[in-house]
């Protein structure tokens, strides 16, 4: 969510002993980023309302009984914040270990980096630790849902819901460890409200939600990001002017996304922009050419 930071008021605060200032309305995370403090986040995304559920961004705020989430705690004058105390490190490490011990995070690149940074050892909860392992859901031609990889960051629910698409095809169902992302009565996507905008996939940080095209290439072992180019261009359909990032591998489009920081899309697209590129590579064009 963009917060209007322009009230003119600036607060003085201290981060890891260094004095700094921040505009009223900024979050601790905003300040951390502004001063270059690497703060891990999983459920946070600039374009979505902070749900502060993953708790990996917690910091120590002087005078507070518990740690506070940097992503959603708004700064106040005189705050003294520690982002690298043993208490903070322990919490972050545990959160990463909790997740990695329950969820397949093999495709969550940023999380892997943070796990290394905090020395997370998810295996210490034992081989019998409960996980969310389950079969992959393939029920339509465009999406694959592999909830074994879901860390329940709520981003897809927010993108499908009131933060962007307002389609509400998915929500969190169940409770506690059984909480999961689901359609109504767990019906397949074709029976649900899904309009295949792909915005849930666009915000998924762990690869739990994936385009069929990518999933199939990964299964076949041909997906190779090192060989891919990413080119920003404008969608060829309606006149809204959405920026598309075209991911191409060996001169073939393999995926389309949109930059989260783009003013027109905020990273969101519709089914046409997201999937309507197949014609570019169809044989008919080749042979006639």
């Amino acid at each position: 969510m963009s917060i209007s930071l322009d009230t003119g008021v600036r607060f003085s605060l201290e981060i890891d002993g260094v004095a700094t200032t921040a505009p009223a309305g900024a979050t601790i995370l905003d300040v951390c980023r502004a001063v270059g403090v690497d703060t891990p986040t999983l459920c946070y995304l600039e374009t979505l309302t902070p749900v502060n559920v993953c708790r990996v961004c917690v910091v120590e705020l002087e005078g507070a009984r518990t740690l506070v989430p940097a992503c959603s705690r708004v700064v106040e004058d005189g705050m003294k914040i520690r982002t690298d105390s043993e208490r903070v490190r322990a919490s972050r490490r545990m959160v990463l270990e909790f997740l990695a011990s329950s969820v397949d995070v093999s495709l969550a690149d940023d999380m892997q980096r943070q796990m290394k940074r905090y020395g997370a050892k998810p295996e210490r909860f034992g081989a019998e630790a409960r996980t969310v392992r389950q079969p992959v859901k393939v029920d339509n031609e465009l999406y694959v849902r592999d909830y074994s990889k879901c860390i329940l960051c709520y981003k897809c629910v927010e993108a499908c819901g009131s933060d962007a698409q307002n389609t509400f095809a998915i929500a969190t169902a169940g409770r506690g460890f059984d909480a999961h992302i689901s359609t109504e009565f767990n019906v397949g996507l074709p029976d649900s409200a899904c309009v295949y905008c792909g915005n849930c996939i666009g915000v998924c940080p762990t690869g739990a939600l994936m385009f069929v095209s990518e999933h199939e290439m990964r299964e076949a072992g041909t997906w190779d990001e090192a060989r891919q180019t990413k080119t920003d261009t404008i969608c060829g359909y309606c006149g809204v002017g959405c920026t598309l990032t075209v991911h191409a591998q060996d001169n073939e489009i393999v995926k389309v996304s949109s930059p989260a920081d783009h003013d027109v899309t905020h990273g969101h697209l519709c089914i046409k922009g997201r999937f309507g590129w197949k014609f570019v590579g169809v044989k008919k064009r080749r042979s006639d050419g």
Binding site: G239, V264, V280
Partner: peptide, 17 residues
Amino acid sequence: NSERRVQRVRKAVDPPG
């Protein structure tokens, strides 16, 4: 686009044939 914004389109792949 519809808000009068001139935007760049770019070549991502070579045209076929």
